[in-house]
Simulated scan of single mutants.
Amino acid sequence: MKIALHGRPLKEAAIPCVQHIFSELKRRGVSVQVYEPFGHFVTRLGIAPEDFSVFNRPEQITDVDFFFSIGGDGTLLETLTFVGDRQIPILGINAGRLGFLAGTLCSDIDIALNQLFAGEYRYDDRTLLHLDANRELFGGVNFALNEFTITKRDTSSMIVVNTYIDGEYLNSYWADGLIVATPTGSTGYSLSCGGPLVMPDSGNFIISPVSPHNLNVRPMIVSDNSVLSFQIEGRSKNFLVSLDSRSKVVDATIKLTVRKEHFKARLIKLAGQNFLHTLRAKLNWGLDSRN
């Protein structure tokens, strides 16, 4: 078996967790491939496995059975950029803060590894969105798990995002920006802008304006079979376009189209992990002293 590991430099409290993961994988005879900067980090700490290969680019990852993302949700989003359309199953290990997607706690790592090697898990396939533009923006990594956003670049005046669904005019959003979120992203930026929570398998996109000037404009749920297109106007010459945590500066000549990606993100769901429990545990959803 071969497992790839992606991570960022971690806080001191998470180091024993990483060391334990390496020890367990060695004990089980697993071949390990590590993201090179993370490999340098664990080597400096003296906890790196004795024999491991490294990767820096997706094409360097070969014959991998599972992908471990060690960190928080941001690390897991980065992990997806290496996995791409190969749909390598990803286990998110929470060595960060909130860990909404990276749901396996370091304290549960032995349980998680036992379930993984015993095959006691299932796949949680999550819809991704795909961005097309009239020029190259993200080096071919044109997909996102959480959201696509258009925002003003600085503290200048609001922008206007002319929005179309399947070629039909929807609205011109006068706002600080606009978010198109997947169901997975409904718990992120979209939620903070008043968007609804959506179940992961609901088959929808959420269009949420950021600080809209029109008070009668509210978030809207559309089918993820829709094709959404955008044209941007504003006094500023430059705007910011983002896919998850990756962003690029564009100007008003950009033409943008968002649709459902043809492949999905394949997350590993272990026993006892489910979306509703995560809502209550991570977001204190429905917290009420009467309950």
Rank of each mutant, 00 (worst) to 15 (best):
K11H: 12
K11W: 12
A13I: 07
A14I: 07
C17V: 13
C17W: 13
V18S: 06
Q19M: 11
Q19P: 00
I21K: 00
I21S: 01
I21E: 00
F22T: 02
F22G: 03
F22M: 07
S23K: 12
L25Q: 05
L25T: 02
L25S: 03
L25R: 04
K26N: 12
K26L: 14
R28E: 14
V30F: 08
S31C: 06
S31H: 12
V32I: 15
Q33H: 08
Q33E: 13
E36G: 01
E36R: 05
P37T: 04
P37L: 14
F38R: 02
H40T: 10
F41I: 04
V42F: 08
V42C: 05
T43E: 15
R44A: 14
L45N: 06
L45W: 12
L45K: 13
L45R: 10
G46A: 13
G46C: 12
A48M: 13
A48T: 05
A48C: 06
P49M: 11
F52A: 10
S53Y: 08
S53H: 08
S53P: 01
S53N: 07
F55L: 11
P58L: 14
P58I: 04
P58F: 14
I61V: 15
I61E: 10
I61T: 07
T62I: 11
T62M: 15
T62W: 12
T62Q: 12
D63S: 06
V64G: 01
D65R: 08
F66H: 08
F66V: 05
F68I: 05
F68H: 01
I70E: 11
I70R: 02
I70C: 08
I70S: 07
G71N: 08
G71H: 06
G72F: 10
D73G: 04
D73P: 02
D73F: 11
L76E: 00
L77H: 04
L77T: 01
L77C: 03
E78K: 03
T79F: 14
T79N: 11
T81W: 11
T81Y: 13
T81S: 12
F82N: 03
F82M: 05
F82P: 00
V83P: 00
V83W: 04
V83K: 04
G84K: 09
G84P: 00
G84R: 10
G84S: 08
D85L: 07
R86C: 02
Q87G: 02
Q87A: 14
I88R: 00
I88Y: 01
I90D: 05
I90A: 04
L91G: 01
L91P: 00
L91C: 05
G92S: 10
G92N: 06
G92I: 14
I93S: 03
N94L: 09
A95L: 13
G96K: 09
R97N: 13
R97S: 15
R97Y: 15
R97M: 15
L98W: 15
L98E: 05
G99N: 08
L101I: 07
L101R: 03
L101P: 01
